[in-house]
């Protein structure tokens, strides 16, 4: 991963530059209850989470323990019933959709279990997507996306459509897309679940390399105990509480 250069400033990224402190995420007292019919499922029951810059944190626990809910709330994709979330020094107002969109596009990156690449776009175009929300010209956008793909080892696959790539390669494209706008936090929900062991470890190595070069903070959920040896921090959830 020596193709990775130093982090470059991305225009139009106010409020997401390192504030000087180490805190990237602070979540306190997160609670979330899903109502299904007449019943209610308490997914989170007062969870606290604190992530420092450069942490690679795994959230683990049995199915239904609230891992994905926690990730969705920290990723501003879902709204907690209680609690507060501070991202990079900015307290999130969950009622303000515009602000949440801005925070997601400027401070957060996402890697999904099923990659969620746009099938009509090439690898480099997929990686360019987050940069479309920034005031960056086409040429520079393309250069940055290409650089990022080189960084994840797909320099020779720039023009390939997702269907022309293996699962592991597609997940690398997804990682490149998550990182191209230099977010302070990358969230990944079961990023290795759709990969074989070799690709899964490769992906984790890649995340580590990117973490060491770019200082990006990673927060991911996983069921795979083998992956837990390689992270700097583990959060275990059980029945919506931190175990």
């Amino acid at each position: 991963m020596n193709a990775l250069g130093p982090a470059r400033d991305i225009p139009g990224k106010p409020g997401c530059t390192p504030p000087g402190g180490d805190e990237v995420v602070r979540a306190e007292g997160l609670a979330k209850t899903y109502r299904r019919g007449t019943g209610a499922v308490k997914a989170l029951r007062g969870v606290d989470l604190f992530l420092r810059r450069g942490d690679v944190t795994a959230v683990t626990g049995p199915s239904g323990s609230g891992k994905s809910t926690l990730l969705n709330i920290v990723g501003l994709l879902d709204t907690p019933d209680e609690g507060l979330v501070v991202i990079d020094g900015v307290q999130v107002d969950f009622r303000d959709t515009g602000k949440k969109e801005l925070l997601r596009s400027h401070c957060l990156g996402f890697v999904f279990q099923t990659f969620n690449l746009m099938p009509v776009l090439s690898a480099v175009e997929n990686v360019e997507l987050p940069l479309l929300l920034r005031p960056i010209g086409h040429k520079e956008r393309r250069e940055r996306a290409a650089e990022m793909l080189v960084s994840v080892g797909l320099g020779d696959r720039l023009g390939h459509r997702p269907r022309e790539l293996s699962a592991g390669q597609q997940q690398r494209v997804a990682v490149a897309r998550a990182l191209v706008a230099q977010p302070v936090l990358v969230l990944a929900d079961e990023p290795t679940a759709s990969l074989d062991s070799r690709s899964a470890f490769g992906l984790l190595d890649l995340m580590h390399d990117l973490n060491s070069v770019l200082g990006t903070t990673f927060l991911f959920t996983t069921h795979d105990p083998r992956l837990l040896d390689r992270v700097s921090k583990i959060v275990v959830l059980q029945d919506g509480r931190m175990a």
Partner: peptide
């Protein structure tokens, strides 16, 4: 729908 969700997660209004 899933693509739309992805785009919205990335930050597209």
């Amino acid at each position: 729908v899933r693509e739309v969700g992805t785009m919205r997660a990335i930050g597209f209004p």
